[in-house]
């Protein structure tokens, strides 16, 4: 594994190795000295073209816990915002000797492009509406921690699948790991060829909830209403929002996940967001361990 661009590139063994490694590394976080010397002398560049303090901080913390040197190359206030092309930025990073580049970009495929222009490992931290592999991996990690296994797990992914990189990465990864995914959304927010994806599709959240072990809520942007994806935010949350009543219809062991940031009152009610069955903060904590695992596996080899 040289880059992590898509969860579709991972086979079952590779994905499991990442999760197992994350489990081991999670124990580091519990120690008083939280640092491992593994990536000492290695340089990791965080190249963020989109504002995402959460994801950037998570990667930064992960790299630092492995003793890597971290450079934050954010779009704002750098040559990037002055119109420098991705290729020129790549050549700059190359010249700096970056061993790994973590890229977040609004264009689908930006991480793929970058991987052709640098020698180091490229880690896709979210590209447009394509993929967000480490999010899916940390989601799978969280599910495994909470529910013990992924094989046969019934996972409902609810919301704006069409524009969601989290959904794409999750469908591919969870299927590889043996879970059964059902996408739940109004037809306007599903890709036209979703019937060819390795998952089930439903327009009816209430029908899916009782048969779900995991319900993953995706963020829905209110602006979608203006593009006629749905008539109103109220109608959306009436059909696809998760509130306390719906939570009650889920099996007792079932958990609620959300990649964050949540829009309370749209796809998730405050009551559900604050319930102990909601794993949002746990996902954040797991994100660091999982990203440590990925950095370790990509860059740790001699």
């Amino acid at each position: 594994m040289r880059h992590l661009l898509s969860t579709g590139d991972l086979d079952r063994d590779q994905a499991t190795l990442i999760l197992d490694t994350a489990t081991e590394l999670a124990q580091v976080g519990d120690r008083s000295v939280k640092k491992l010397p593994t990536l000492r002398g290695r340089t990791v560049v965080n190249l963020f073209y989109e504002d995402s303090t959460r994801t950037r901080t998570s990667f930064e913390l992960a790299a630092k816990r492995l003793s890597a040197d971290v450079i934050n190359f954010s779009a704002k206030g750098s040559s990037v915002s002055k119109g420098e092309s991705l290729k020129d930025t790549a050549l700059t990073l190359q010249a700096m000797g970056a061993d790994g580049v973590v890229i977040r970009h609004s264009a689908s495929g930006a991480a793929h492009r970058l991987s052709h222009w640098v020698d180091g490992s490229v880690l896709n931290a979210g590209d447009g509406t394509h993929e967000h592999p480490t999010q899916a991996l940390l989601d799978a990690f969280t599910m495994r921690n909470r529910l013990g296994t992924l094989a046969g797990l019934r996972v409902a992914v609810v919301g704006d699948v069409l524009h969601s990189r989290v959904a794409r990465s999750n469908v591919l990864l969870l299927t590889t790991l043996g879970a059964e995914v059902t996408l739940v959304a109004p037809p306007t927010l599903l890709p036209v060829s979703v019937g060819t994806w390795p998952c089930e599709v439903s327009y009816d959240l209430d029908a899916v909830l009782p048969k779900s072990d995991v319900v993953m809520m995706l963020r829905v942007q209110g602006e979608r209403m203006n593009e006629s994806f749905f008539p109103s935010v109220r109608e959306y949350s009436r059909h696809y929002g998760l509130d306390g009543e719906r939570l009650g219809r889920m099996p007792e062991h079932a958990i609620v996940m959300h990649p964050g940031p949540m829009v309370r009152g749209v796809e998730i009610s405050a009551e559900v967001a604050d319930s102990p069955r909601c794993t949002v903060t746990e996902q954040v904590a797991n994100g660091v361990s999982l990203r440590m695992a990925v950095l370790y596996l990509l860059l740790g080899g001699s």
């Binding site: 689908s108 495929g109 509406t129 394509h130 993929e131 990189r165 794409r168 036209v192 060829s193």
Partner: peptide
Amino acid sequence: AQMNEGCVSDRLGLPGWP
């Protein structure tokens, strides 16, 4: 729109051109 709308655009997350 960025490419033909279909299986490939849906997989790649590129806005489709029906």
